[in-house]
């Protein structure tokens, strides 16, 4: 059972740099990923939107494995800024967990 964290939603999901609300879960991003990341971005972004911080942090390796190559954005029908969202998550983890 994971706790929904409202502060996490406020810090990440409601920031200007993160926007995944338009994601329609079509899976094009996953299908076109050169790294073959299965989690990113639709499932991961859903964790963020609903405030499951623990799930996000447990997937830190996946978040930092993203190449930021934007191949996914080329095939995203909803124009979600996937690479920017990933960078925002990295920034959050760096600050809160890695104390950078």
């Amino acid at each position: 059972m994971y706790k929904i964290d409202a502060d996490f939603v406020e810090a990440v999901s409601h920031s200007d740099e993160f926007n995944a609300n338009a994601c329609m879960h079509c899976g094009n991003c996953t299908a076109s990923c050169p790294m073959g990341l299965e989690l990113l971005p639709r499932k991961l972004f859903r964790y963020v939107v609903v405030g499951l911080e623990k799930m996000v942090v447990e997937n830190a390796e996946t978040i930092y494995s993203c190449l930021l190559c934007k191949m996914c954005e080329e095939s995203c029908p909803a124009d979600v800024h996937i690479a920017g969202n990933v960078k925002k998550l990295r920034n959050y983890i760096n600050t809160k967990y890695y104390k950078l």
């Binding site: 050169p34 790294m35 390796e61 930092y64 494995s65 190449l67 930021l68 190559c69 191949m71 080329e74």
Partner: peptide, 22 residues
């Protein structure tokens, strides 16, 4: 062009094995 395939380099410093595979 717009659909180029990444070289894997961006994650070389953190995940060398994954980078080499790409």
């Amino acid at each position: 062009g717009k659909l180029t395939w990444c070289c894997g380099g961006p994650v070389e410093s953190l995940f060398p094995s994954k980078s080499k595979k790409v």
